[in-house]
């Protein structure tokens, strides 16, 4: 494992923990898209089915278990525990526009036409766009809490770091997975606008707000 991959995983884990703590400590999921979190739960579930079929390392298994468990905990907090604070009126992105095309694409473009492989491919495609309901919510309300911005930055930079990891692996291990690379590029591009706002506003101590 190279440094980019490791930092990417740490950043991904930080994002998940930041979100869990934000909701738990404030007893509120205001400003958080339940739809994006639901999509991430689907992403982890469909990708990590290989927990039952394939052992890679203790690190790999424990991270997968933590990702899956925390995604379900987040969904539970939004749709059950702190349901009253969930701002469903602003969470109006139509997720079928993400799920249906990525599902179709995973049947058409995959490494292997087997159930587990198609589900893995679907999870890669879906992950690349799963943040859209959250970004849509931020653009709709025109603002995001600073802690939510930190969450989004950690989540966005994780896939960006994976891009460097893939360059590294291509160079030194002669390994590349085109499906993951293209989806990772799409995912990173979706965050570019947010990265700009994060650097120019949040890092300078201002709240993330969009011009009206």
């Amino acid at each position: 494992m190279n440094i980019f991959r490791f930092l990417g995983d740490i950043s991904h884990l930080s994002a998940i923990i930041i979100l869990l703590l934000k909701i738990w400590k404030s007893r509120s999921c205001a400003g958080i898209s339940g739809k994006s979190q639901l999509l991430f739960a689907i992403v982890f579930t469909t990708r990590y089915l290989d927990l039952f079929t394939n052992f890679i390392s203790f690190y790999n298994t424990s991270m997968k278990v933590v990702y899956v468990a925390s995604s379900y905990a987040t969904v539970w907090m939004i749709y059950s525990k702190f349901k009253a604070t969930y701002d469903g009126n602003h969470d109006t992105f139509r997720v079928e526009f993400l799920i249906v095309p990525t599902a179709i694409l995973s049947f058409l473009v995959n490494h292997d036409f087997t159930p587990l492989e198609i589900l893995w491919t679907f999870s890669i495609y879906l992950e690349s766009v799963a943040i859209l309901p959250q970004l849509f919510m931020v653009s709709k309300t025109g603002e995001a809490e600073t802690i939510t911005s930190h969450y989004l930055f950690a989540l966005g930079i994780y896939r960006t770091l994976y891009l460097f990891n893939w360059i590294w692996r291509y160079q030194f291990e002669e390994f590349f997975d085109l499906i993951a690379i293209v989806a990772g590029l799409v995912q990173t591009v979706l965050y570019c606008d947010f990265f700009y706002l994060y650097i120019t506003k949040v890092l300078k101590g201002k709240k993330l707000s969009l011009p009206a």
Partner: peptide
């Protein structure tokens, strides 16, 4: 170099 699908990443 060939594309592989080992899925050893997260």
């Amino acid at each position: 170099v060939v594309a592989r699908s080992e899925h050893d990443e997260l």
